[in-house]
């Protein structure tokens, strides 16, 4: 049985993703398309919210991914700091812009949804505020990567920032809840009994979530491959200069 850590070797990673990436890409496109088409066109209108409710199929998966991607970056940063696998650091770097866009989609669809529902584009509600803060954390993380020339130094510093940032992001979340008990509804999906959502919505929503996860995976793999190549190129140029 091959060790999981083998994939931390850049060459092994490239060879594996050579065949894995196309499969994931196709799966991502297919599942997301099915989920969105199903959700948008083949679900009943909500008796209260009308067809506006269907933005949930974009809003919830993107919001979920926005958080999950940060957690993934945290794990990747830890792996880099502890085991010093370059691929891990580069994967965290590649994930950040995707997370930023997911956060942005979550915020925008939320605004578009909130306008007809609450009569306002924006409210300083704990959830919304937390997402805005998460957006700032993504921005800072990406900006720090962009500012540092030396790739290993960049990986180290951004990893520490991600760690410290995670702690403060959680603190900010509680601060925001404390600060203003808002009008955002509770989580749309709930595992508790007395579920608030019908299966007619849940099934396509789950499909969309899986789809968004696959989209992220595809973008992550593609982005990491790009970062590995860029890093390799940098190394080759430096090599050339030394010789």
């Amino acid at each position: 049985m091959a060790s999981f850590w083998e994939y931390a070797n850049p060459l092994k990673f490239m060879r594996t993703t050579d065949w894995l990436l196309p499969i994931v890409t196709v799966a991502a496109v297919v599942v997301t398309t099915i989920g969105l088409v199903w959700g948008f066109f083949f679900t009943p209108d909500d008796f209260r919210q009308g067809s506006t409710v269907k933005i949930v199929f974009l809003h919830v998966p993107s919001a979920m991914m926005a958080i999950n991607i940060w957690v993934m970056m945290l794990v990747a940063s830890l792996i880099w700091l502890i085991r010093r696998h370059h691929v891990s650091a580069l994967a965290a770097k590649a994930a950040a812009p995707v997370g930023l866009v997911m956060t942005l989609i979550g915020l925008i669809t939320g605004a578009v949804w909130g306008q007809p529902m609450w009569g306002t584009w924006w409210a300083w509600d704990p959830r919304l505020t937390s997402f805005l803060i998460l957006f700032l954390f993504y921005l800072g993380y990406i900006a720090l990567w962009a500012a540092i020339d030396d790739p290993d130094t960049g990986a180290d510093l951004t990893a520490v920032l991600c760690l410290v940032g995670s702690v403060f992001a959680v603190l900010s979340r509680y601060a925001a809840i404390f600060w203003n008990q808002g009008l955002h509804q509770g989580a749309s999906l709930s595992v508790q009994p007395g579920t608030r959502m019908d299966w007619a919505y849940k099934a396509p929503l789950y499909t969309c979530m899986v789809g968004f996860g696959l989209v992220f995976l595809a973008l992550l793999l593609a982005g990491t491959r790009t970062e590995i190549r860029a890093r390799r190129m940098k190394a080759l140029v430096a090599r050339e200069r030394m010789a």
Binding site: L136, F137, G140, A147, F168, S172, A175, A176
Partner: peptide, 27 residues
């Protein structure tokens, strides 16, 4: 400390530090 070696690190530092200030500010 994060931005010490960077040219024009000041602006970047503000971007990094401000989100970390949020809980302190709120409370």
């Amino acid at each position: 400390a994060l931005t010490v070696g960077l040219k024009r690190g000041g602006l970047l530092m503000s971007l990094l530090v401000l989100p970390l200030y949020i809980p302190t500010l709120v409370f």
